[in-house]
Amino acid sequence: MKRLLTLLLLVCLGTLHAQEWQESYASALDRANTTDKPIVLVFSGSDWCAPCIRLKKKILDSEEFKVYATENYVLYNADFPRKKQNQLPEDKSGVNKTLAEKYNPKGYFPLVVVLDKNESVLGETGFNPRLTPEKYISLLNKFIK
Rank of each mutant, 00 (worst) to 15 (best):
residue 12 C to D: 05
residue 107 G to P: 10
residue 69 A to D: 07
residue 131 L to H: 02
residue 66 K to I: 01
residue 35 T to Q: 10
residue 109 F to W: 07
residue 67 V to C: 05
residue 1 M to A: 12
residue 126 G to Q: 05
residue 109 F to A: 10
residue 6 T to P: 10
residue 25 Y to T: 00
residue 33 N to F: 03
residue 68 Y to A: 07
residue 83 K to N: 13
residue 117 K to L: 08
residue 28 A to V: 03
residue 21 W to N: 06
residue 137 I to C: 05
residue 63 E to W: 02
residue 32 A to V: 06
residue 52 C to H: 02
residue 19 Q to R: 07
residue 86 N to L: 05
residue 67 V to Y: 06
residue 135 K to D: 14
residue 101 E to G: 10
residue 31 R to W: 11
residue 123 G to W: 10
residue 100 A to G: 13
residue 7 L to W: 13
residue 63 E to D: 14
residue 96 N to M: 03
residue 53 I to W: 12
residue 99 L to E: 11
residue 131 L to P: 04
residue 96 N to V: 00
residue 3 R to I: 00
residue 39 I to E: 08
residue 90 E to C: 01
residue 112 V to Y: 05
residue 63 E to P: 00
residue 121 V to F: 03
residue 55 L to K: 02
residue 27 S to W: 11
residue 79 D to T: 01
residue 52 C to E: 01
residue 8 L to S: 13
residue 139 L to A: 04
residue 105 P to G: 11
residue 81 P to G: 05
residue 95 V to W: 02
residue 128 N to P: 05
residue 97 K to A: 14
residue 78 A to Q: 06
residue 120 S to V: 00
residue 61 D to I: 08
residue 9 L to Y: 08
residue 45 G to N: 07
residue 145 K to G: 14
residue 135 K to Y: 12
residue 1 M to C: 05
residue 98 T to V: 14
residue 69 A to M: 02
residue 4 L to F: 15
residue 64 E to S: 15
residue 36 D to K: 01
residue 31 R to I: 01
residue 110 P to C: 08
residue 96 N to S: 05
residue 38 P to W: 10
residue 25 Y to K: 12
residue 137 I to A: 05
residue 13 L to E: 11
residue 113 V to M: 08
residue 108 Y to V: 11
residue 58 K to G: 00
residue 138 S to K: 10
residue 47 D to S: 04
residue 13 L to T: 03
residue 65 F to V: 03
residue 104 N to G: 07
residue 90 E to G: 09
residue 39 I to L: 09
residue 78 A to W: 01
residue 34 T to Y: 13
residue 71 E to S: 10
residue 65 F to Y: 11
residue 28 A to Y: 09
residue 128 N to D: 15
residue 124 E to S: 13
residue 63 E to L: 13
residue 114 V to P: 07
residue 108 Y to M: 13
residue 42 V to K: 03
residue 119 E to G: 01
residue 103 Y to H: 04
residue 92 K to S: 08
residue 50 A to Q: 11
residue 109 F to L: 14
residue 15 T to F: 15
residue 59 I to F: 07
residue 27 S to T: 13
residue 91 D to S: 12
residue 102 K to G: 02
residue 95 V to A: 13
residue 15 T to M: 15
residue 127 F to G: 00
residue 64 E to P: 01
residue 106 K to C: 00
residue 44 S to N: 02
residue 15 T to L: 15
residue 62 S to W: 09
residue 87 Q to W: 04
residue 103 Y to N: 09
residue 36 D to P: 00
residue 114 V to Q: 04
residue 54 R to G: 03
residue 92 K to E: 11
residue 87 Q to E: 10
residue 12 C to E: 07
residue 68 Y to R: 03
residue 9 L to C: 13
residue 25 Y to F: 14
residue 2 K to W: 09
residue 141 N to I: 00
residue 87 Q to N: 06
residue 58 K to Y: 04
residue 28 A to W: 09
residue 133 P to R: 03
residue 120 S to A: 15
residue 70 T to S: 11
residue 4 L to E: 12
residue 59 I to M: 09
residue 13 L to P: 09
residue 122 L to P: 09
residue 73 Y to R: 07
residue 138 S to D: 15
residue 40 V to H: 05
residue 85 Q to S: 15
residue 2 K to L: 09
